[in-house]
């Protein structure tokens, strides 16, 4: 998906070089959403058996027997798989959102894009996988009676299935918009249709549902929502969070950042996020996310080093090693 206009920065650059967060000049400054609290249970690592595998449009849904993960996982959390077996040359874990839990099992939707995810997608019932989870911060739940809007892009929609069911079970009204580039890349349509009304499907190419991006139906539905939850590609999250913030609706986004470990030690999955103290830092998507308040993520600055980040000033220091022959 391309960058959406609505997903533009929420950050204001002052002539002094200082950058301020919303509001847009002339509007009242709304307090930002609270950072999502950590999970109640620590993660566990172990070998688990694949008990189910089925194609789901362009993806593969794996069901895995792991009671210790299934019984403590909350919607929004993810698991991290080792891929390729114990002597694999692929060392990095593949982190994937938990799509559903029940009866000591959890499921994930795997998008086979490269060698590691293809290895995972080709696991068959009876195969064993080394998996760590549940990881990351869950979606915070809204106050009783709050109507919720769920927005999923591509296989990111899978991360919202458990949340949709939980919200309905707690008596919330749930609406949902699910979008993808084309019909084959839609995900979890039936699962979300079962819990959400209204329920809207969009495809960029119009192969099914409404033609276009999720942003159009989201713009129509967001005013009726008391909270928005979104998971999908970064430009989509930026656009959805922007729409929600513009209308004063709190939002939670589950980001998809490239992770090496999933457990918080590698520092690769960072993105600029406004902290509880109002200062921005590179936050880890794994342990400080993947769920962030939508108005705290500086989407427009992802992939850059914003100069106002805590510690950005220290990145400019040059080494002072003496030239050869010079006395140190």
């Amino acid at each position: 998906m391309s960058e959406d206009e609505e997903g533009g920065t929420r950050v204001v650059q002052l002539p002094s070089g200082e950058r301020l967060l919303p509001p847009v000049p002339g509007t009242a400054r709304a307090p930002l959403g609270q950072p999502a609290p950590p999970a109640a249970h620590p993660p566990v690592q172990g070998v688990a058996v694949v008990v189910g595998s089925r194609p789901v449009s362009a993806y593969t849904e794996l069901t895995i027997e792991a009671p210790d993960i299934a019984e403590t996982a909350a919607p929004g959390q993810f698991v991290a798989f080792a891929v390729g077996g114990p002597t694999s040359s692929m060392l990095l874990r593949r982190s994937i959102a938990i799509a559903g839990v029940g009866e000591g099992r959890f499921s994930v939707v795997v998008s086979a894009r490269a060698e590691g995810s293809t290895w995972l997608a080709t696991r068959r019932p009876g195969d064993e996988v080394d998996v760590v989870g549940p990881l990351g911060r869950p979606f915070p739940l809204p106050p009783e009676g709050t109507p919720a809007l769920l927005v999923g892009g591509g296989y990111g929609a899978a991360a919202l299935v458990g949340l949709g069911g939980l919200l309905r079970a707690r008596g919330h009204e749930v609406a949902a918009v699910v979008g993808a580039g084309d019909q084959a890349r839609l995900c979890s349509v039936d699962d979300l249709a079962a819990v959400a009304a209204p329920f809207v499907v969009t495809t960029d190419d119009g192969s099914t549902g409404r033609a276009g991006r999720v942003t159009e139906p989201v713009a129509e539905l967001v005013s009726g929502a008391g909270v928005v939850y979104a998971c999908g590609p970064m430009p989509m999250l930026a656009a959805v969070a922007g729409l929600a913030t513009d209308r004063g609706v709190p939002s939670w986004v589950a980001v998809e950042e490239s992770m090496a470990c999933g457990v918080g030690v590698c520092m690769t999955c960072v993105l600029p996020v406004v902290g509880a103290d109002g200062r921005s830092r590179f936050a880890r998507s794994c342990t400080e996310g993947p769920v962030f308040a939508g108005d705290r993520v500086r989407f427009a600055d992802v992939g850059t080093l914003p100069p106002d980040l805590v510690g950005a000033d220290a990145m400019q220091l040059a080494h002072a090693v003496p030239e050869e022959g010079e006395t140190p």
């Binding site: 690769t268 960072v270 590179f282 992939g303 510690g311």
Partner: peptide
């Protein structure tokens, strides 16, 4: 280091 450091912009790793 003596001062907090933000670290570099992403992407930060490749397998």
């Amino acid at each position: 280091q003596l001062r907090p450091r933000s670290g570099r912009a992403t992407p930060r790793m490749a397998e």
